[in-house]
């Protein structure tokens, strides 16, 4: 067990635990905050896996923007600050499908990889990733920017009552 393994284990446990709390807690705002913890742990995982750019982008966008948006939405929809009792639907289909998918995937991956070892590759720096993005993956990159533009316009159209389709 190298140090990388230990870190991965620890951060993984934190991520899974925080994720469990996200889907199980009865406090709406706390769910958002546990999501921050989970995403932060995952950013740490990325760093261990030498995916530096991805890790910082994760922190910037996910923790910095997405979670903030989610918390905004929680606030704007008048979420109660304390515990609320009616947050959950019946649990058995969720447990069934969730456990099935999670454990199934885990079994699949364990069966595939067992306790094998790999060497950590070269760090995924901004320069290296940039090379790949702007050479091999430039078309998806451009399409994604169009997609972002569409999402932006769509969000504005949805939010403002004076623009949009006929009522």
């Amino acid at each position: 067990m190298t140090g990388a393994d230990v870190l991965l284990l620890a951060l993984g446990a934190v991520a899974v635990g925080a994720g469990a709390l996200v889907v199980a807690t009865r406090h709406l705002v706390r769910a958002g905050l546990w999501l921050v913890v989970c995403l932060g742990a995952l950013a740490g995982d990325y760093l261990v896996l030498t995916a530096e750019l991805v890790a910082w982008v994760q922190v910037l966008i996910y923790v910095g923007a997405v979670v903030v948006l989610l918390l905004f939405a929680v606030m704007l929809t008048r979420a109660p600050i304390g515990p609320s009792d009616d947050l959950d639907r019946p649990g058995w289909p969720a447990a069934l499908v969730g456990a099935g998918s999670g454990l199934g995937l885990a079994v699949l991956l364990v069966h595939a990889f067992r306790w094998s070892r790999v060497d950590l590759p070269a760090a995924g720096t901004a320069e290296r990733l940039g090379e790949q993005v702007f050479r091999a993956w430039v078309l998806p990159f451009e399409v994604l920017s169009v997609l972002l533009l569409a999402a932006l316009v769509g969000a504005i159209v949805l939010s403002r009552p004076d623009i949009g389709g006929r009522r």
Binding site: A15, C38, A94, G98, S101, G102, L103, L105
Partner: peptide
């Protein structure tokens, strides 16, 4: 995998 399962749940 566990995170995915938690997300589905």
């Amino acid at each position: 995998a566990l995170l995915f399962g938690l997300g589905v749940y």
